[in-house]
Design a protein around this nucleic acid. Structure first.
Length: 235
DNA sequence: CGACAGCCTGAGGGCGTCTT
DNA sequence: AAGACGCCCTCAGGCTGTCG
């Protein structure tokens, strides 16, 4: 039961800052360690091919050590000519089969098939939003980032679970991540009673992050990293 | 009572490394 | 040389709960 004081600990940014700050020798060291999301302007100016690349990279990372996928990513960029969505949407089953013979990429048919599907998602959003996909991402409020996770999971391919958040992080959009450490901290604080999966749970977590954001002015990705560091120092 | 959302389980997936 | 394993996750399908 609990634990009113523990809840207030996490909602108290001061406590979070002090706890995490102790892990570092200086403010500068801490700031350098924390992730930093791109500005809306930067997000808008990235080409949509970069978003499809990040989306696909995240899809391939699922279930595989990320370092393995990252090391092969330059070969993916070559194989898929830079991931321009208007070209990738044309990938036929025959094209997919020929990519299955390229041993410098990861030959996972299910994942390869997501490339044209997610390219189509990008084109659809462009049409609906009347802008580039990058602008759509830039305009989406981080205070409801779980809503964007949901949209990507529903309309994209293999972007459910933690993949939508992982994609957004790769792309530079501000989002928190539900890593095991972040979940452990939320559990310890009594904010959630079990691993958050339902929309209701996710909203509760989003609300908690929004409160921290309000009181600190920090990005969600930084708060996410700080919560993680508060339970797992790593050094 | 129907429609839909949420929940849970089990299957499936390629690679690198460790084991035999 | 071949096989097992850990990595870490998504998704389909079947079930239960909720709301109007």
């Amino acid at each position: 039961m609990l634990k009113q004081n523990e809840i207030s600990m996490v909602f108290n940014y001061r406590w979070l800052y002090d706890t995490v700050r102790k892990r570092f020798d200086s403010d500068e060291a801490m700031e350098a360690f924390l992730p930093k999301a791109l500005t809306p302007e930067e997000l808008k100016h990235k080409g949509d091919d970069r978003y499809l690349s990040a989306m696909s990279q995240r899809v391939f990372q699922a279930g595989v050590q990320h370092s393995v996928v990252d090391a092969k990513w330059p070969e993916f960029e070559k194989a898929f000519s830079g991931f321009a969505p208007e070209l990738m949407v044309l990938l036929s089953p025959e094209h997919i089969e020929s990519h299955m013979k390229n041993d410098r990429i990861i030959r996972d048919r299910t994942k390869l098939k997501t490339i044209p599907i997610n390219a189509q998602l990008i084109l659809d959003i462009r049409q609906e939003h009347g802008s580039s996909f990058g602008e759509f991402i830039a305009d989406w409020p981080s205070a409801n980032i779980v809503g964007l996770w949901r949209l990507l999971a529903k309309r994209g391919s293999r972007l459910g679970g933690r993949s939508a958040a992982g994609f957004l992080r790769l792309a530079g959009k501000d989002t928190f991540l539900l890593t095991s450490d972040v979940i452990a901290r939320l559990l310890a604080a009594g904010i959630i009673g079990h691993e958050p999966t339902s929309q209701r749970d996710l909203q509760i977590v989003q609300d908690a992050f929004n409160e921290l954001q309000q009181s600190s002015g920090r990005q969600l990705c930084q708060l996410s990293a700080m919560l993680s560091l508060s339970i797992n120092p790593r050094f």
